[in-house]
Amino acid sequence: MAAGGDHGSPDSYRSPLASRYASPEMCFVFSDRYKFRTWRQLWLWLAEAEQTLGLPITDEQIQEMKSNLENIDFKMAAEEEKRLRHDVMAHVHTFGHCCPKAAGIIHLGATSCYVGDNTDLIILRNALDLLLPKLARVISRLADFAKERASLPTLGFTHFQPAQLTTVGKRCCLWIQDLCMDLQNLKRVRDDLRFRGVKGTTGTQASFLQLFEGDDHKVEQLDKMVTEKAGFKRAFIITGQTYTRKVDIEVLSVLASLGASVHKICTDIRLLANLKEMEEPFEKQQIGSSAMPYKRNPMRSERCCSLARHLMTLVMDPLQTASVQWFERTLDDSANRRICLAEAFLTADTILNTLQNISEGLVVYPKVIERRIRQELPFMATENIIMAMVKAGGSRQDCHEKIRVLSQQAASVVKQEGGDNDLIERIQVDAYFSPIHSQLDHLLDPSSFTGRASQQVQRFLEEEVYPLLKPYESVMKVKAELCL
């Protein structure tokens, strides 16, 4: 049975990233139509530049190519590739079939990587351009969430054990800070992308030097003109047959890092959902379990974690691919890159769409948070109580021993009897502590235990987050809708 299948058929496997999760716009960027249309555009740009620099290419040939950029006979191309065992030459023939007058000058002087690699770089750039505003929107939604809850005390956790208090907004800023680093890295790697350009079979530009009869300047002009037509500021000066596969490492490393950030955020949300302090959106008709109707599973956060793990592992592909590119190139890269580049971007696209949807509907339960604080705060307040007693004339050592005994009794009630923490009640009825009984409410005010959390939130948002989001103001209103 021949390899390949009808990918629109229910009898043929289709990647869930495309069929179930990723956005239509990201799927289109990695589609065959987008790819092969870009090949034709690159052939047109090459012909236009070659004509401008004096090669015998007519206006009629150029116009014929322009008129057929979208006229792609995919069936013919597939048949040609089956016959020739070469995808680029299959599309040269297919393009030439609908451009008979231009057929002889299509791909003039070029090698397969002229269309293959340059198209990949265009796709990487455009895919990054799709991700950047999506990530900015996630940051914006979380920034709104953090600002609104900047002063809401909550129990902090280290080692997932109760620690000092923080605020809900401050905790959210930990998430935002990681995503801001990801946004900066995505922008950097996007701006650092260079075009492969017009380089020939081993990167020496020998074929173009021959076409222009040894004119170095025209060869350099050709490279520059096509690079500018493709919208790049610069091209690699040095290439082998391909652009260095280190570029793929750079791009997928940034995406993998984004995956790590999203995994951490969504894990926190899942843990908070278990504590009943916070939940992701839950639709009115949504079913959490087929057997347990009360369940409210954090399905979206779980999906993000599941896909983020996949995204983090994909960076190993370009690392290994770059390491086995012998001399000017081997074909070890080809099949692998067809999979890992598309999957990385479709996965990143999915987790950003999902995280935006989550961040637009996060639900906080202040009463649950308050109750958990009441359970733990008495123990945390013991040092403040000791200091207040010393100020009232008591002995630190005597007070410490009193607190120690009462704390152990209260802990026994919590752990052995399943009761509430009654340390404060014990202190309130103990005559030894009568000098500070009137101060206990103040000493137990949760806001006095959150330090500068709310001020940190305000400063972080104003100095770091809002300036970073400013270039994306025009796209901030787009909502994230999930079908599944």
Rank of each mutant, 00 (worst) to 15 (best):
A3E: 00
A3G: 13
G5T: 07
H7T: 13
H7R: 07
G8D: 12
P10H: 14
D11L: 07
S12A: 15
Y13C: 15
Y13M: 06
R14W: 13
A18L: 11
A18K: 15
R20F: 15
P24D: 07
P24C: 00
M26W: 08
F28S: 12
F28A: 10
L44V: 09
E48H: 07
Q51E: 05
Q51C: 05
L53P: 01
L55T: 04
L55N: 09
I57S: 03
I62K: 08
E64V: 10
M65W: 00
K75E: 05
A78E: 01
E80N: 03
V92W: 04
C99V: 04
G104P: 10
H107Q: 04
L108N: 03
T111W: 03
T119P: 05
T119Y: 00
I123P: 03
I123N: 00
L124G: 08
N126G: 07
K134F: 08
K134C: 05
V138W: 09
R141P: 06
R141H: 07
R149F: 06
Q161H: 03
K170D: 04
C172S: 11
L174W: 14
Q177H: 11
D178A: 12
C180Y: 14
M181W: 05
M181C: 06
Q184I: 09
Q184H: 04
R188S: 01
R188A: 15
G197A: 05
K199I: 08
T202E: 03
F208S: 03
Q210R: 02
F212G: 06
F212T: 01
G214L: 02
D216I: 02
V219S: 02
V219P: 00
E220D: 01
Q221E: 13
D223A: 08
M225S: 09
V226N: 01
A235N: 08
I237F: 05
T244Y: 13
D248E: 10
I249T: 05
V251F: 11
S253C: 03
S257M: 05
S261P: 14
S261H: 08
K264T: 12
I265S: 09
T267N: 02
D268C: 12
I269K: 15
I269H: 00
K276L: 08
K276G: 04
Q285L: 08
Q285R: 04
G288L: 13
A291V: 06
P293E: 09
E302P: 05
S306Q: 03
R309V: 07
H310T: 08
L311D: 11
L314N: 03
L314K: 07
L314Y: 10
A322P: 02
A322H: 11
W326C: 01
E328F: 10
A335H: 00
A335E: 11
A335C: 03
I339W: 11
I339P: 09
A344L: 14
L346Y: 02
T350A: 07
L352D: 13
N353S: 14
T354W: 02
N357I: 01
N357L: 07
I358S: 02
L362M: 14
L362F: 13
I369G: 07
E370M: 09
E370V: 04
I373L: 08
R374A: 02
L377K: 10
P378Y: 14
M380I: 15
I385W: 08
I386E: 06
M387D: 00
G393N: 12
S395K: 08
S395L: 03
Q397S: 14
C399L: 07
H400S: 09
E401F: 00
K402D: 15
I403T: 04
A411P: 09
A411K: 10
V414M: 13
N421W: 05
N421Q: 08
D422I: 11
L423S: 07
D430T: 15
S434Q: 10
I436V: 12
I436S: 09
H442M: 04
P446G: 01
S447L: 10
S448P: 10
S448V: 05
G451A: 13
R452P: 14
Q456T: 05
Q458D: 15
E462Y: 08
E462F: 12
E464F: 07
K470L: 13
P471H: 10
S474R: 13
M476G: 15
K477A: 13
E481C: 14
L482S: 13
